[in-house]
């Protein structure tokens, strides 16, 4: 049985990589590797996971320099020979080892008006949204986000401007902007059209490159830019 050389981040913002040797198994995921270390080599290792099947978005880490969902990432696809480097997500404060404080990330969803603002009550009939309508198609393209933070961690604009709302929050704003049942689009556009919003995007497209759900936040941000421009021309922004 061969072994994997694994370097794992230990500590908080300040810290260092610690080396572990982990048995190499068939179909092993990066999350399996971290779990092996915690169960068999060092029980003090902190990390997050829940569903293990790519639904909850809690297991994201930076593997060999790139942010990934570790439960769905096979070791075979990412190893550099037989070595792995596992670090916490970037652009977020590290609490301990592989665990980051994701408060900023989610607060920015709220700041981008990521909440649904209904225009009807439960007493009204169901809204009917045509599946083929352009708005619904735009929503479909972005709605599968699991909130893992991979895009936020990968985004250089977030590193350069810590106020920047980031790809996930703006993808959320874009899906709501296209939700015909929502009634807060003017506020939402105002929230995302500021200095730290859609116009700050440099179109590096690292978010789109890394999103494990193949969503393109860059497309969403481009959509927000167009919508903001239209609103500004109409004097509504």
């Amino acid at each position: 049985m061969s072994t994997l050389e694994v370097k794992v981040w230990r500590g908080g913002e300040e810290g260092e990589f610690q080396r572990f040797e982990v048995p190499r198994l068939e179909s092993q995921t990066v999350l399996d590797v971290v779990t092996h270390i915690q169960r068999h080599l060092d029980p003090t290792l902190s990390y997050r996971f829940a569903c293990r099947v790519g639904m909850c978005g809690s297991c994201a880490m930076v593997v060999n320099g790139r942010a990934r969902w570790t439960c769905r990432t096979h070791v075979a696809d990412v190893t550099d020979g037989d070595s792995l480097e596992i670090a916490p997500l970037k652009n977020l404060p590290v609490i301990k080892d592989l665990v980051t404080d994701m408060r900023d990330f989610f607060d920015k969803w709220a700041a981008a008006q990521g909440q649904f603002h209904p225009t009807t009550t439960r007493k009204d009939d169901f809204a009917r949204v045509e599946p083929e309508s352009p708005e619904r198609q735009q929503v479909d393209a972005g709605i599968e986000c699991i909130g893992c933070g991979v895009c936020y961690s990968s985004c250089d604009v977030v590193s350069w401007n810590p106020e920047y709302l980031g790809p996930a929050a703006m993808n959320r704003a874009w899906t709501l902007l296209n939700d015909v049942r929502d009634g807060a689009n003017e506020e939402r556009l105002a929230a995302v059209a500021g200095d730290a919003g859609c116009h700050a995007c440099h179109t590096h497209m690292t978010c789109t490159e890394r999103c494990p759900k193949q969503i393109s936040p860059t497309a969403a941000i481009a959509g927000l830019k167009r919508a903001a421009l239209k609103a500004a021309l109409k004097g509504k922004l």
Binding site: A87, K90, T206, E209
Partner: peptide, 17 residues
Amino acid sequence: MKNDWRSRNHPAWWAFL
């Protein structure tokens, strides 16, 4: 912590540069 070139190494980032 910030990203390094392993994260940036993809066509659209090079296009930006």
